[in-house]
Design a protein around this nucleic acid. Structure first.
Lengths: 253, 253
DNA sequence: CAGTGGTCTAGACCACGGT
DNA sequence: CCGTGGTCTAGACCACTGA
């Protein structure tokens, strides 16, 4: 028994790398600090660049790192808590909601949304685009689909599109009695347009929050909101979220 | 102006590939059907295997595909809706909850959990492990941290560990008046132990649901539940979720 | 312009599942 | 045992950022 298994490691290199880097991040780096570039890091750890990148990708997915092309890799601040569920439902655009209307145009909704709205496959609905900003950075983009049959007073008011029309559609919604709502969260990847709004590359991981609004005994609106998964922690419920930290965190000077 | 840009495509190959495959999945494949292997697919599209894999990874992230080493790549069924928020809070383990206790042992909680429980850094708490199965497959693994000071009647009952002790701890919790709860959802990657419980590889994307339980004017328990992000859609609120489909879906014969 | 991360290639070997 | 997906290498070029 003279031989001891010092390196019984069928553990992948990138996994081990990720662990090492994660610990270094906790103890030796401040938030906002810039890491050495990928080629140097790979050389330092004696691995190919692709392998190092696999570790960095994981850490970025977990919100520990932020990478930007042409700039570098920086230590990300802890995820920000973003309130999503207001428990007792309210209409989008009512007091205290964190969204900014961008514009509004008629369009044919995707198949799943059409099904939820019980719309005919080729039927058009109002599509309101909104964005959400928190702590000075965009965190989410939303497409709000509103059944045309529920917003009938609209034809004469406002422009045919634009932010003012968006506000008009929301105003009309508020006239209805909200009977309930319904939420689902799932993982997705950013479409090209969302990616631009969120300042990320296409395909970036996002949390998709689908909300259905019920009134007049049916589903009158569906919101599909995509949140940056790297920077956001979605919070539900009444209590104000205490910030969660990964470990020792300092601010870059 | 005779030249028309037919292929103004600074669009990455893997992104285009993903789109093509996604459409093929909708129209030409049934749920459960096996795709050609990666080497054949790469050759068929005229790209390197690594590039093909980048597209497959995205599709797996979106829950469209399922890949298993030694087996192959299959078309995934639509994500299953998994109820998470029961609106008016209930204790874990109360009637109608979908979790199965596995075991229970004392341990030192991770730093963030210790902070939420207002526990001293080196203080031990009860850690109850539970799993959740839906439609015959494991969908989530949970670690439930319970402050020892809230479960005092326990010392004499049950075994020092195991499922029966887990049930004992939960029983004691139910004696307290639940004053409220609090949820957060964020993206994470599966630790080695979670991965095994969820039948995935380490690092697989998961949705981490952190729930705080309030009683006696403080946080008495914290649940950290990790759900398979590829197969689950977390649902909140009262209405029973209607299944969402991506498009034409058939069952493999 | 130089330096960064993002994409892509053409190989190789390994770990696992089923036969 | 073979075939699968998972890991890894050592290069190359591209797209973007900021000086």
């Amino acid at each position: 028994m003279g031989t001891t298994q010092l390196e019984a490691a069928p553990e992948p290199k990138y996994w081990h790398l990720k662990t090492v880097l994660s610990e270094a991040l906790d103890s030796e780096f401040a938030v906002g600090e810039i890491l050495p570039n990928e080629r140097d890091l790979a050389a330092r750890f004696g691995v190919a660049r692709a392998t190092l990148r696999q570790a960095l990708e994981q850490l970025e997915l977990e919100g520990r790192l932020q990478r930007r092309r042409g700039v570098g890799t920086t230590v990300a601040p802890p995820r920000m808590g973003v309130a999503v569920g207001s428990e007792h439902g309210t209409w989008p655009g009512e007091v205290g909601d964190a969204w900014q209307p961008v514009d509004c145009a008629p369009a044919q909704p995707p198949a799943e949304v059409a099904r939820m709205l019980a719309a005919k496959p080729d039927e058009q609905v109002h599509v309101v685009r909104r964005t959400r900003v928190s702590h000075g950075q965009p965190v989410a983009a939303e497409l709000l689909y509103v059944a045309t049959s529920s917003v009938t007073e609209l034809s004469a008011i406002d422009a045919p599109s634009g932010a003012s029309r968006a506000r008009g559609v929301l105003r009309e919604l508020h006239r209805l009695g909200l009977e309930g709502q319904d939420r689902a969260v799932e993982l997705g990847s950013a479409r090209a347009d969302d990616a631009k709004a969120l300042d990320r590359l296409p395909g970036a991981p996002v949390l998709v929050v689908t909300t259905r609004f019920f009134a007049e005994g049916r589903t009158v609106a569906v919101s599909v909101a995509t949140y940056r998964a790297d920077t956001c922690r979605l919070t539900f419920g009444d209590a104000v979220g205490v910030e969660i930290h990964h470990g020792p965190e300092r601010q870059a000077s």
